[in-house]
Amino acid sequence: MSFRISSDLHEKLIASATEGERSLSEEIEWRLEQSFREPEIATKIAETAIVSVKESVMESVYADCGSSIGYEFGRQFGRAITDKLEKVRNYFPDAPEPWYRDIIQINFLIKDLDGVDKSITEYIAAQKARQHPSDSNVFILYLAHAQSLGIDTSGLNQEEVIIKVGEYYAKKEKSQNSE
């Protein structure tokens, strides 16, 4: 087999072959093999990183919140991320690149992640309300979430905070649908 390459690339290959103590032919073969292995390695690294981030988030949230609510939020967050990544894989089954290298898949994932915090908060609040209907933690959870959204909660009671959060998301959804 023969092929043409630029003199600049030829010099780089010779320098790399010398550094790696390989012949020029071995260097070319090694580099070609690496180009086929790179996607496999990158996919494994990304999947391992996702699992690690998920576990880390769960542990950090539990440590920061010091309660089962924080742990549950972290667990639900990890589950949501995993579900959304699986949705990307299913939506783009024949994608030539993994999701983290394809801007279309990344944008799909980002758009799909929008609202995850709302759904997790609502899930946990509903769960807490079922377990302890009079528990003030539900209000605290909604209050913290409203404040993280930039909603002024001063002087509002529980029902008013819940309404404000609902209005925020209704407005956000309306603006997204109009785009």
Rank of each mutant, 00 (worst) to 15 (best):
D112E: 12
Q131T: 04
Y123N: 06
K171C: 11
A49I: 11
I69S: 01
E122R: 04
L143F: 08
E26I: 10
I151V: 00
K118M: 11
F108Y: 14
K111E: 15
L13T: 02
R22T: 01
F92G: 02
S60W: 10
T43H: 09
N177V: 03
F92E: 12
I5G: 05
K164W: 02
L85W: 06
K164N: 08
E21H: 14
A129Q: 15
S60P: 01
N177H: 11
E40Q: 14
E122Q: 12
P98N: 06
E26K: 07
A125C: 12
R101L: 13
D83C: 04
Q34E: 09
E19M: 10
V57T: 08
L109K: 00
K87E: 12
T121H: 04
E26T: 04
E26D: 10
Y168M: 10
S154D: 06
I120Q: 01
I50K: 04
I28H: 00
D152I: 01
L141P: 00
L24M: 02
I104R: 15
A46W: 04
K84Q: 13
I81C: 05
Y62S: 15
I163F: 04
I5M: 15
L85P: 05
S2Y: 05
S154M: 05
Y100P: 08
E72F: 12
V88R: 06
A63T: 14
Q34F: 10
W30S: 12
E72V: 12
D117F: 04
K174M: 13
V88A: 12
V51E: 07
R22W: 03
A17V: 12
E27S: 01
Q34N: 10
I151A: 00
G78N: 05
L109A: 09
F108V: 08
I120N: 03
Q127G: 02
Y123W: 13
S25Y: 09
I50W: 12
Q76D: 12
I69H: 03
G78Y: 08
S16T: 09
D94K: 13
L13E: 09
Y62T: 13
I5S: 06
F36P: 00
T43F: 05
P96L: 11
H145M: 06
F3D: 09
Q76R: 15
I151W: 01
A126Y: 08
S67C: 14
E160V: 04
R75V: 05
D152G: 02
D135Y: 00
L149E: 03
T43D: 07
D64W: 06
I163D: 03
S2R: 04
T48N: 04
V88W: 01
D114P: 00
V116K: 02
D117A: 13
S175F: 09
S7A: 13
E159G: 06
E86Q: 10
R75I: 03
K164V: 03
L149D: 03
M1S: 14
Q34C: 09
S68C: 06
A144Q: 14
I106V: 06
T43Y: 02
A42G: 04
R37I: 05
E173I: 02
R101A: 07
I14N: 11
K111M: 09
F3E: 10
I28G: 00
F92Q: 05
N157H: 11
A15G: 05
D64G: 07
R79E: 15
